[in-house]
């Protein structure tokens, strides 16, 4: 290690000049930021700005071309396995198994993360109660409405009590009421000390975040609390902030 980042246990995610190049194209261009424990960190940007690539590097799915990243105290370049154990992940695509029952999905992912059977059973019971899902427990996931599925997918992604959960546009295609409920689940998770790293297209959701970063063309152009950002850009809401920044983008949708 050429340069060690001062590790502060309060900082769950640290990115330092994190870069990803695909050939000549620089998808993520030297981004640096820290995320504190228990924080909801909004990761905003237009399509093609490099959000998903940045997130994949932090999850250990993609090797950075340059820079460093520490997630939950582990180096994303060298300690991928340990990083993977400490995080949860929910992708844009709904990604539970449609042809498995609700409890089977939970059991499966609990098992993958090495949880004990007894613990899985116990936590499944309380989760079903929390989500009001007791009647759906034995249903195939494919038969549930989208809103239910999304809530379930989120609950599964934090089922093994990770230190950080990465949510990649978790509320796409979900109605406003379910989105509201979904955010309640997110708040509930942070109250248990889970750090939330979320990308979204919905600017109202950006307001729910503790801090927000906005990526334009692979770089982070702004990073602060929603309130400060609005003040800085002299805007009434996050949407205006985003519009001002996104207008500068040279990359078109890729």
């Amino acid at each position: 290690m050429e340069k060690t980042i001062q590790h502060n246990p309060d900082q769950v995610i640290v990115a330092e000049n994190l870069t990803k190049k695909f050939g000549k194209f620089t998808a993520v261009d030297h981004i640096s930021f820290e995320v504190k424990k228990g924080e909801i960190f909004g990761f905003l940007g237009a399509n093609g700005a490099g959000k998903t690539t940045a997130m994949r590097m932090l999850c250990g799915l993609s090797i950075p071309t340059g820079g460093k990243g520490i997630v939950a105290g582990y180096d994303i370049g060298t300690q991928t396995e340990l990083v993977k154990k400490s995080i949860g992940y929910m992708s844009q695509k709904f990604s539970l198994y449609d042809d498995l029952k609700v409890w089977e999905n939970i059991e499966l992912f609990g098992g993958i993360y090495g949880m004990k059977d007894a613990e899985i059973r116990e936590k499944t019971d309380s989760l079903m109660k929390l989500l009001n899902f007791e009647n759906e427990r034995d249903k195939l996931v494919g038969s549930l409405p989208l809103g239910f599925k999304q809530k379930l997918a989120f609950s599964v992604s934090i089922f093994h009590s990770p230190k950080v959960v990465f949510l990649d546009e978790p509320t796409g295609g979900v109605d406003p009421i379910t989105r509201r409920q979904f955010w309640e689940l997110i708040y509930d998770a942070t109250s248990r000390g889970i750090t939330v790293f979320v990308t979204t297209h919905y600017m109202d959701e950006a307001e729910y975040c503790d801090r927000v970063s906005i990526m334009v063309d692979g770089k982070i152009e702004a990073l602060d609390t929603p309130r400060n950002l609005k003040k800085q850009f002299n805007a009434n809401n996050m949407d205006e902030v985003f519009q001002q920044l996104a207008r500068k983008a040279k990359r078109v949708d890729s």
């Binding site: 993977k84 154990k85 992940y89 992708s91 709904f94 990604s95 198994y97 993958i112 993360y113």
Partner: peptide, 13 residues
């Protein structure tokens, strides 16, 4: 195709 592979790859399995 369904995106579940991504979840499996993120997992420590």
């Amino acid at each position: 195709e369904k995106g579940t592979m991504e979840i499996l790859l993120v997992s420590p399995m």
